[in-house]
Design a protein around this nucleic acid. Sequence first.
DNA 1: GTGAAAGCGCTAACAC
DNA 2: GTGTTAGCGCTTTCAC
Lengths: 353, 353
Amino acid sequence: MQRVTIAQVADRAGVSTATVSRALSGTRPVSEEVRRRVLAAARELGYSGNSIASALRRNRTDTVGMVVPSIGNPFFTSLVESVEHVLQAEGRQLFLCDSRQDPEVERQHLRSMIARQVDGIIISPCHGSESASAVQAAADAIPLVQLDRHVADTSTDWVGVDDHEAMRLVLEHLHATGARSAAFVSSAMTNSSTELRLAGFRRQTERLGIRTRPDWILLGEYSMAWGRSATAELLDGAELPDAIVCADDLIAIGALRTCRARGVAVPDDMQITGYDDIDFADLVDPALTTVNQPRDRIAAEAVRLLATAETWGGTSAHTALAPSLVTRQSTASPERSARYLTGAEHQESSSRS
Amino acid sequence: MQRVTIAQVADRAGVSTATVSRALSGTRPVSEEVRRRVLAAARELGYSGNSIASALRRNRTDTVGMVVPSIGNPFFTSLVESVEHVLQAEGRQLFLCDSRQDPEVERQHLRSMIARQVDGIIISPCHGSESASAVQAAADAIPLVQLDRHVADTSTDWVGVDDHEAMRLVLEHLHATGARSAAFVSSAMTNSSTELRLAGFRRQTERLGIRTRPDWILLGEYSMAWGRSATAELLDGAELPDAIVCADDLIAIGALRTCRARGVAVPDDMQITGYDDIDFADLVDPALTTVNQPRDRIAAEAVRLLATAETWGGTSAHTALAPSLVTRQSTASPERSARYLTGAEHQESSSRS
DNA sequence: GTGAAAGCGCTAACAC
DNA sequence: GTGTTAGCGCTTTCAC
């Protein structure tokens, strides 16, 4: 079980270690005859290389590190899948870490990745401000691109979707279905996505004349549990909005559950929208109208930016991709509501007891 | 942005590189005065070490590799979380790969991990037979433990739950609720879990006198989509079982959906059980009765076995942990059914059309 | 308690 | 096309 080295392969093939290296890596031409002998020797000995030694020498690991706030969140899971896919196509590997929403854990992971000489880092920082110093420090050392979320006051690359545009799509759709008031359920304001989505919600409701209220803005965390309790709170309120706009699909699914449990019909009595378009969004009942993030595209762009940073350094780019709206059964269809409206002219928000 | 080396730290602290190494790693005692100077120099220069060089020298990476069939499957995701947690407590890192259910991809990942000199590998092989050669080859090179699933005809460590025991729990519970016939929906027979769960199902149904039929054994894949279509097939059959036993929670959730869509009441007209106890199992409606796998325990055991293998080599261990049954609303309560049975004596499977 | 020096396994000049 | 050689940055004897 002693590891076989390049020297042993060289011995067996009757050539120098340099030649073996060249034959195996294809860095420089090698005679067909020698190539065959080397390959045979390597196979016979079960040689599998030592990328640690290679990395030390070449100063490259062909590995990129990725840090996500929670691998349990399906959105990040699928982002990871996309990134891994892109990298694999280039023969590179992904080193994945979960910061568990903890800036301290995140900082350690970043340090460790730098020590491990990853070629670049893709990160979705867990906190808008507390992650900043560690992210900046890492970015100073090696190419780094932020994905989806990003920290304030740093000058690194970023790629994600245009949250304002997303909110425009959601609220215009709701408006078209006849909704004239809306609540917003999100996570606490600890990261950029949250902030931008809320800002977008505010701007678009105002622009479209959709009414909202301070106690309809509920901030907790990205989880189904929070979606449930926030919705319960809304349903217990004096007035009911026409729609609940959720900052991610997990919250929205929680909202759906509470509505069902309380006998509130979706979308007839209440419309609900999500954000992310996780696989599950299509599988709940009613299926969720949500914002689709082009994950493969985001992943590809992130990897591309990393490569650019490797050669260019310095100048950073912010890439906001266009999201799209996926309309399913948790919102009413615009046509149908239009018909309703013909009679009702303007649908006031229903109120309750 | 030039990486700072140990030599620079040594210079600044006015000591040798050896001393810096010792001061930083704590391998051997160093005078308090020198220690302070070294630490200060390291901080000032922003030294972060080079674990590649360290790994080459020490022949250890403090990294374990993990390969799962699908990171999109919540069961594996949470297994990964558990393993990462355990490792982090020991100051080690996890190198994660997704084989995407493809033995070829899996083989490449394994080769790559060995080349990367991970200290050990934790794998849930994607295929019962096609994964075998690569797994065996990897196990010959470094410590390896199989998790949950395992390949046939290898002599590596394994840790998972006792599938027979799990099926006993499920079927005894169903029997107690009055079920006297059952169908089984699982993935195709390409891995050990599937095989053992089916074998357990067969044995327990026979033992308990629960009737089943060849066309009630449906094998597809571990996904909600398959759960839906398999259930549709069952519901279209001439005879309906009292219960559908599913080989994982995703399948079971799909089954729940189809039942709801078809107006089949769960658990009154049909009982459904899952396997894994993923987070979602408690959040669907009705909440899913399922088999809980002690994931943290499995993870801890796997890491422990790896450490054992590092020192002992050779002899391997198979550790089957006891699963537990989590009864929720997708199955009837034993008490209630007992009352029913008092009148009905023996509840035959309902038939249809 | 500390320093000098010898590599870990590999690749990239540099020769030929 | 191929061999020789000098390290990559670190840890660890072995001296003192």
